[in-house]
Simulated assay, not measured.
Amino acid sequence: MNDKPEGWYYFGDGKLRYRDDYGWTDYYMDTSDPRAADWPPPAPKTLLHELREEMRDTTVRTRRGHRLATLFYRGRHVR
């Protein structure tokens, strides 16, 4: 059983690391990440769900009917 509750913890060197019910995970986040500004940041599952929703919202159909995911990162068009 864990002695610490589930959540983000400062791991050193400007990084946060997520701990779940089973121990330390492979999920890291920079403390400079805008999502870390609102404490506590969302759990990794929530972040992944939000990313999937964002991808679904930015997916467009091309003329041939293929799906093309389009992201905009700091004003740049990225595929």
Rank of each mutant, 00 (worst) to 15 (best):
W39S: 13
L68V: 08
T25G: 09
A69P: 02
Y22K: 14
K4R: 11
A36S: 14
A43V: 01
N2Q: 13
K4T: 05
D20F: 03
P5G: 01
T31Y: 03
Y73C: 10
T58H: 13
D38Y: 04
M1Q: 07
D30E: 15
Y28G: 02
Y73W: 14
R35C: 06
E50S: 13
Y10T: 07
D3I: 05
E50K: 13
Y22S: 13
N2E: 12
R56M: 10
R76V: 06
E6P: 01
D57H: 09
Y18D: 00
E53L: 08
R79I: 11
P5Y: 02
R52G: 09
G14S: 10
P44T: 01
Y18F: 11
E50M: 09
M55P: 00
Y28R: 06
W8V: 00
A69I: 10
Y27K: 10
D3V: 05
A43L: 01
Y28E: 14
H49N: 11
Y18S: 00
E54I: 01
R52P: 00
M55A: 05
T59I: 11
P44D: 02
F72V: 12
G75M: 08
K15Q: 15
G12H: 12
F72K: 11
P41S: 12
K4A: 03
D30T: 07
Y10I: 02
H66P: 01
G23E: 07
K15C: 09
F72Q: 08
Y9P: 02
V78T: 12
T58I: 05
N2S: 10
D57C: 10
A36Y: 03
E53V: 07
T46L: 10
P41V: 01
A69R: 13
D38Q: 13
E6H: 05
R19I: 00
R61E: 12
D30Q: 12
G75H: 09
M1H: 04
M29A: 00
P34I: 02
